[in-house]
Amino acid sequence: MNANFDWSARLPLYWQLIRGDRPIGTLLLLWPTLIALWWAAGGVPPPGVFFVFVVGTFLMRSAGCAINDWADRDFDAHVERTRERPLAAGKISPQEALKVAAVLAGLAFLLVLPLGWRVVAWSVPALVIAATYPFTKRFLPVPQAYLGVAFSFGIPMAWVAIRGETDAACWTLFAANFFWTIAYDTEYAMADRPDDLKLPVHSSAITFGRWDVLAVFLCYLAAFALWARAGILAGAGAPFLVSLVVAAGIAAYHLELIGTREPARCFKAFLHNNYIGLVLFAGVVLDLWRA
C-alpha cells in the first residue's frame, strides 16, 4: 500500500461507491431474506444465523454496487442520476472499485463458512450471478429478470441454513420475490429511461415501452398471488393475510405514481417498495408470534 494513501479521504468515497448512504438496495434484498429465515425457523431464527444473513446481505449488496459501477463506468457519466457517483466522476479508479468489491465478497464468503457446506455451495452461484448481473444490460432485453434471480438467492440459502433443504414454500417465495424485483426495478428503469435510450444498454422500461405500467401491474399481481400461496404453504394465518392486503394497497399507490411516467415519480415508487417488504415481514413476525 502506498505510504501516501489517504484513508480518511478515500473511505467516504468507498462508502458512496457501495451506496452506504443509500440503503434502499440492501433493504429490498434483506426483507425477503428475513421472511425466509422466520418461516424456515418457525419463529425467531438462531442469533448466529440471523447475524450472518443480515451482515452478509449488506456485504453482498455493497460488493454488487462496486462491480456494477465498474461495469457501467463508461455509461454512468452520461446519466443524470449517476454521473456524480465516485467512479463515474473520476474520484476513484476502476482498480479501486474492483478491489473494494473483492474484499467485500471475500468477507461475505468467509461469513457463511460456519453455516456448513450446503450454504457455502449455494453462496457460489449467488456470487457469480451477482457479479455478472451488470453485464446483462448489454444483451438481455429484460435484465431485471436476471436481477430477480440474484435478489432472490438469499431465500433458499436461508432455508438451507435453518432446515438443511428447500421445499415448496421456499421456492414459491423465491418466485414471488422474482416478480416483485422485476416490478420495482422496472420502476427504477422508468426513471432512467430518457438517459438509457441514448446508450447501448437494455432495460425492462425500454423493452416494455408503452406497456410498461401494465407490465409492472402484472408483475405485482404475480408476486402477490405467489406470496399468498407461499403463506398457505408455510401455514401463515390472518396477520400475514392482512399484511398482504396492506402491501397490495401500497403497490396500487405505486401504479398511480408511475402512471404519469415522470422520472421523479417513478423513482419515488421504486424507493417506496421498502414499505412493501417491511409490511410483509411484519405480518410474518406477528403471525408467528401469535402462533
Rank of each mutant, 00 (worst) to 15 (best):
W171T: 00
L11K: 03
P134Y: 13
T33I: 09
P32C: 09
P134Q: 11
L110M: 13
R22Y: 10
A41I: 07
K268R: 14
L127H: 10
T181V: 12
A131D: 03
P46I: 00
G43M: 07
A238K: 05
K268W: 05
G209N: 08
L13A: 06
G90E: 10
R118Y: 07
Y188N: 01
A150D: 06
I18M: 09
F281Q: 03
N273E: 08
V279L: 14
A189M: 10
L288F: 07
R118I: 01
I92W: 12
N177Q: 09
W171S: 02
A223M: 11
L244I: 00
I250Y: 15
L27E: 11
P114Y: 06
V52S: 03
V55R: 10
D72V: 07
Y184T: 04
G231M: 13
F178L: 07
L147I: 11
T33H: 12
F267V: 01
G116C: 07
L11R: 04
G116H: 13
W31C: 03
P23L: 12
A150P: 04
W70M: 05
L173E: 14
A101N: 04
L13K: 14
F174A: 04
K99L: 13
A247C: 11
A228C: 14
S203L: 04
M60V: 06
G235N: 08
F139I: 02
Q144A: 05
A158L: 09
P45Q: 14
V245S: 15
L288W: 06
P134F: 12
K198D: 00
Q144C: 04
G237E: 15
L241M: 14
A3R: 04
A215C: 02
V242G: 10
G90T: 10
A131N: 08
A108R: 11
F139G: 01
L147V: 09
F179G: 00
P46H: 11
D74E: 13
A63W: 02
D74Y: 10
I162E: 02
I35K: 01
N273L: 10
G148P: 00
A89H: 13
Y133G: 00
A247I: 00
T166L: 10
T57K: 10
F139S: 02
F178P: 02
V119P: 02
W159A: 03
S204E: 00
G283E: 15
P263M: 05
P156G: 05
I18P: 06
P239I: 04
L226H: 09
T181C: 06
C266W: 01
V160C: 03
V100C: 13
F267P: 02
V100I: 03
A161K: 12
T26S: 14
M157F: 06
K268S: 09
A169W: 15
F151E: 07
A183D: 04
G277Y: 15
A105G: 13
S243N: 11
M157E: 05
R265L: 04
P156A: 05
D196V: 04
R118M: 05
A71T: 05
F53Y: 08
I24N: 10
N273W: 15
V103P: 12
P141M: 05
G249M: 08
G64P: 04
L221I: 06
P94M: 12
L127I: 07
E80D: 14
L278S: 05
V52G: 01
A97C: 09
T136E: 00
P86T: 02
W15C: 09
P47V: 03
C219N: 11
S62I: 06
L286Q: 15
